[in-house]
Design a protein around this nucleic acid. Sequence first.
RNA 1: GCAGGAGUGGCGGAAUUGGCAGACGCGCUGGACUCAAAAUCCAGUGGGGCUUAAACCCCGUGUGGGUUCGACUCCCACCUCCUGCACCA
Length: 861
Amino acid sequence: MAYPFSEIEPKWQAYWLQKKTFATDTTQTDKPKYYVLSMYPYPSGQGLHIGHPESYTAVDILARYKRHKGFEVLNPMGWDAFGLPAEQYAMKTNVHPRATTKENIDNFRRQLQAIGFSIDWDREVDTADPNYYKWTQWIFLQMYNAWFDTRAEKGRHIDELIAELQEKGTTDLPKPDNYRGPAWKFDGEGWKNMPTLEKQTFLANFRLVYEDEIPVNWCAELGTVLANEEVDEWVEKGYTVERRPTRQWMMRITAYADRLQSGHSTLDWPVSTIDMQTNWIGKSFGAEITFKTETGDDLRVFTTRPDTIFGATSMTIAPEHKLVEKLTTDEQRQQLEAYCNEAALKSELDRQTETEKTGVFTGSYAINPANGKRIPIWVADYVLISYGTGAIMAVPGQDERDWEFAEKFELPIIRTVQPPDDFEGKAYTGDGLAINSDFLNGLSIADAKEKMIEWVEAEGIGTAKVNYKLRDWLFSRQRYWGEPIPLARYENGIIEPIDVAELPVELPELEEFKPSGSTESPLALAEEWLNVEHPEYGPGRRETNTMPQWAGSCWYYIRYLDPDNSERLIDSEIEKRWLPVDFYIGGSEHAVTHLLYSRFWHQVLHDLGHLSCPEPFTRLLHQGMILGENSQKMSKSRGNVINSDDVIAEFGADALRMFEMFMGPLEMDKPWSSKGIEGIRRFLNRAWQMVVGDEKKPVVIEDREMTPEEERILHRTIKKVAEDIEGIRFNTAISALMIFVNEFLNVETKPKKAIEGFALLISPFAPHFAEEIWNRIGHEETIIYQLWPEYDPQKTQVDEIEIVLQVNSKIKDRITVPAGSTPDELEKIALENEMVKGLVDGKRVRKIVAVPDRLVNVIAT
RNA sequence: GCAGGAGUGGCGGAAUUGGCAGACGCGCUGGACUCAAAAUCCAGUGGGGCUUAAACCCCGUGUGGGUUCGACUCCCACCUCCUGCACCA
């Protein structure tokens, strides 16, 4: 008889839900805790396809296994519920995104429950629920009211900065890069006498949330800015996207660049992910050096190669550099203005894909401080305003880009590192000794760098400097369906956070979900909601920007632990005991976005004393993609999407779960195979046959002694399955279960111990099946909290083992020897073997290699 | 260009510390059951040579070298594919 999944699976699903079998008690302290997490889904209208359950199943296996191992396990699920598709749909149909989203969530939940995941459904979070986003907004305000103290390498409350300013002004305070505001130097009195608005401007240089005017990808039809990676998609769909400078809220993630970098060493993450984050953060060491110009302005550059300064034959500045205007001579002005305008209109993408170097001479000159030479200043868009100082010293001899530029515009080239004799390339970026460099000559690159930095510091024209590729995080979106940013701006220019007591700032109801017509979000149309009144500052307006979709997912793993707490972010006892997440599984597409942003928030909350551990996710793994049957990515347009409901209807949830895990290593991409899942169905049917049998021939299970062979199979399977689960090798764990069934299927009467063991071993993979057979063996209690069987290493051993006999490394015979025979014994046995004797006869035995339980290799010539 | 990962039968994949390559599954072939088919069960299944058959021999883990008694595994060079970043000075 086949495994009757369509009766059994819904039965146990209902049982688990009703009995709250998977409820987690976060307050108990008897058991060790284990927190597993999978990246929660965006509840799209398409529902679950077979790609979704892959990571959920992997996490579920770990959760169920750890319960059997005596852990208190948390395995939660929730919804990344804000998002553009629901809002796009609202714009077309005027159906409220909340309605669409709720419907989708209900469908997702039903589909997930039909797969039998061991989730504590009482902890579900929904990022678009005001009870949830109240705390997203609360965290936002924490960050708004925080600054990074570079002296302590730590985030602190802004009040601590204000206290310092009141006492001694900026006396001990390091000046931030790109400081904008009132004159930097003042004492405590100076602060006290400063007008409120100026204080606000001053503090904005420090806050982890600040406003900036930056060029963004603006799409008028959508009425929103788009992230760089979103631009292509919408342009393809026929929308126009233009670059436009707009005031945006930013998060100062760059302040945490170093902490985000150094935190990696404590994480058990895939190296590739850590590498990606490392590249993204892009820490580099070098120097900032000031070049004097003939117009009297100082031009500051960042370079990682201060050792090459004697080869700096020109300077290049970005078109957006603030000195462009001043450095431009009248003869060059027309040409330069045209060039800068053109550069401003070009998207970042266009600028990147252009291969040919372009640029225009400003007409001005700077002085190379190392050798006093007069060098021309150019403007070129290969220099990026957003990295370093937006200006470089061009050293064509040692930099490929500068070489290309110098070649095209016929600028002089001086090598300052001696290339090897056979070097035929252009710019030489390899190792070598310094040449043409005065007092650096003969030094290695590293020594020359060090000496040059000492020199510029002594001359007072530069300092050693660390730079990062990481940029601050553009945090505002001009959308309706997102968390409102809880700030208000008053007519006197003062910006104030909304009082914490008034959180959440809920989304207003709108008549229509159309763009506002300006660069503001549709919230600008909700007049009643929009206008606020301050007792001191008078009338004002709420911030109309909303947060990006990342915001809610930056901290959802915290909310799961204390989902109903309306008093505080999380109970501190629960937080201390349950964070960090022990095991996190999700797609590698979030390697630098979600995973970097949530680490950032977590570190800030840690610094401010709200969380006790420094990192959120101890161990991380990325599941591979499940491809369509044609080995292509599943997508509607390719028509190869397979819905999980259909698979469950035909094969059952246990088969779906098992097959997804059996297809190959979790982290690998693998194509779906409708034939393949039939193999799993066959296996489950055989397993059912092994334990239950059919009406004609019901299986007899006896509480009898096992034969040594049966014991060996059972103990080996226990060992293999446990080791494979711990090592996340679910495919080979399942193959061990298959071998078990192949061995036991035709045994006359089944030993009860073996069948009970099998039920436990298969329970993380095929939980409905396991519950049912556990029950049929005669247990009243659920299998979920039964302890995992222990194996006896002795019982996994065989007495006799087949080994290979090699002569001159070629296999010549196989013989059976007592297990654990020593090399000496093996050697003796081998030399007495007829086959070996015959082959060695007349030759000299030079060497014998004997590996216990494996082989003997006789080398004879 | 830079960084990371992967190349093993017809297919998905397995192989502990360098020690019997191809576990397990799919597919295929043959057989049993059946009027027949499906399902199920049993046997076989890397390629080639030789043979009535068995035995036996040769080749084989992307390519070319190397280390070793022995290499899918370690080292060097290269090729192909995937993923991410990309004028970051």
